[in-house]
Computed example of a mutant assay.
Amino acid sequence: MSDIFAQAWAWLGQPNRWSWTDPAGIPYRTLEHLGFSALGLLVAGVLTIPPALWLAHHRRGAFLASSVMNIGRAIPSFGLIILCWYLASRWGLNTSFWPLLVALVALALPPLFTNTYAGVLTVDAGAVDAARGTGHTETQIMLRMELPLASPVILAGARVAFLQLVATVAIGAIVNDGGGLGRYIVDGFAQGVAGYGEILAGGIAVIVLALLCEGLFSLITRLAVPKGLTLGTTARPQVA
């Protein structure tokens, strides 16, 4: 066991390990990892939040929301990546980019959709009726009232989705030439016993990144949620 830690320490001490421009550097791989995760979350949010907001405002799609949540829990991350890679290779697409991105978007859709839907449903119906009585349009009610008030629950869903994406990017290194921090784990396994130190260091790096992202989302939630909302009772994610 001590040999593994010694290998990891020696690996971390290599001169190019902390480079921002060398693909072997941890900062370089961290930015690559975060870039893929953020892009997947952004695309999923654009595709999901508007329709979920509209459906919840009009009190439609309850069965769809429940189905999306259940499907999201059943999707295996690794299997989805392999399926997307197979389809991309058959269709002549870039297998270093599209399989992982499509898989990330698919994994982020369920928590974003269900939390947006559930968050809008928790908005007080009396306040919505009052807004209609004062002449607000349906669009104004959705964007100026329901969306801000539902933001704690939406951000909770985004947090769950983003942490899942961070973990999935590491797995995606198997089919992605970049792979973020997961590249170290894959390369370490390819070396056999000699790569155990790299595997350990790469795994620790992924864990640290996930913890930092968790703290960042907590800070974003505090800054973005309208004052007066109780985060402890409102911002509970609706998905596991």
Rank of each mutant, 00 (worst) to 15 (best):
I171A: 11
L223P: 00
P99H: 09
V193T: 08
D129C: 05
P27W: 10
L149N: 09
S37K: 07
A74H: 04
L80M: 13
E214K: 10
R183Y: 08
L216V: 12
G157P: 02
F36W: 12
T122N: 15
G192R: 00
A235E: 04
G35Q: 11
Y28N: 11
A74C: 09
Q7Y: 02
T168C: 07
D187L: 13
A38D: 01
W18D: 02
F113C: 07
Q14C: 06
S151Q: 05
V153R: 10
F217V: 06
T30M: 11
P111K: 01
G228V: 14
S19N: 08
G25N: 11
H136G: 05
L64P: 06
P23C: 03
A24P: 02
E32V: 07
L112R: 08
D124G: 01
W54Y: 13
R183F: 07
V166E: 01
M145I: 15
L231N: 09
T139R: 11
I185V: 15
T116N: 13
H57C: 02
L83E: 04
P27M: 14
Q164Y: 01
L104W: 05
T230H: 15
A24G: 12
R236Y: 00
V153H: 04
A173K: 00
H57L: 02
I141A: 10
L93V: 06
V193L: 13
S37N: 07
A173N: 02
D3V: 13
G178P: 08
P15E: 11
I26V: 14
P76H: 09
A6I: 08
I154P: 00
A161I: 06
R73E: 08
G126V: 01
Y117Q: 05
K227S: 15
G157H: 03
R29G: 03
R144I: 05
G79W: 03
A74T: 13
